[in-house]
Design a protein around this nucleic acid. Sequence first.
DNA 1: ATAATTTGACCGGG
DNA 2: CCCGGTCAAATTAT
Length: 316
Amino acid sequence: MDTIINELTQGMELAMQLKSILSSESYSETKHVLIQQIISSYDRAMSLVNRVDSGGQTLLLAPPMPGQPESSVSVDESPRSQDVSQPFDDQQEDKVASKKRKAMPTWRHQIRISTENGLEGNTDDGYSWRKYGQKDILGSKFPRSYYRCTYRYVHHCMARKQVQRTNEDPTVFEITYKGQHTCNPTATPPVALPQSPEKPETKQNNHQLPLPPKSEEMLRVSPSFSFPSPIENYQQSHFLNETDYGALEGYSPSFISPAASGTNYFIEGGSYFQQHDESNLLGITATSSMNSPLGFPADPQDLSQSFPFNNSGYFI
DNA sequence: ATAATTTGACCGGG
DNA sequence: CCCGGTCAAATTAT
């Protein structure tokens, strides 16, 4: 066990060093995402190892829990984004084994979109989500949108997320993740196609990085693509639908899926690569939702942890 | 035709 | 009954 820890620690340190070097260079979304994924991987592995005996319960289903994920590393050094991570105090919950609590991990993260110059970032976290609802929340000028993993029925992935535009600073969105993704498709990859060099390409995700899921627009001018925001979108469909198409393909979505998730890397314009679409540039809808009733800001809660969740990616 | 969104109805806790 | 969350039918985008 010690050996494992030592190896992990070493890997983590090396990754951190690499990260600092990279950050001094020109900004690159891809590099950041990759390094973040590497670090997150180590962090998760270390957490798992550490908690081995912690006991309590075995978490069959939800292994990952936020506990102290980030630990030392908070990678985001990027310009903006702040996340608030709060020490876990709610960890003590459970005292009573009431049946109700769904102990599902939840964490929050705020991102700022830089609308200004042309580009925006895509705030995508690499997963594909489907909007299933939107509600006006008391005290909030903007509606909150609810998303769930696109593969909910196909892969039993119960991950969900909520996106709420901040009252105070409209360029900041708070996204709250709930539950972990379990949609790793078919882990088949490794085994299945060991050597076949092909690239699987699926419509959307192929690069192995984060990819761009959908697009949407934001307040004015936003490039294209995706990020959740004011207007978010998602959908839900019936089981049938999903299953159906899921079946069609067979391969599941991406094996590449993962991507880091959440945390950081945000936007910021830079030059990214964006390959496709640009359909809508202007956002229109966005503003529509603005109604400002009463208001008082109030910033409610904050407990959160920030952290990504991601899955492991297996690489070939 | 199928998949994704939009939205008001519906639900359950407080 | 209020409110956050989810469902699902209608609508729109692919």
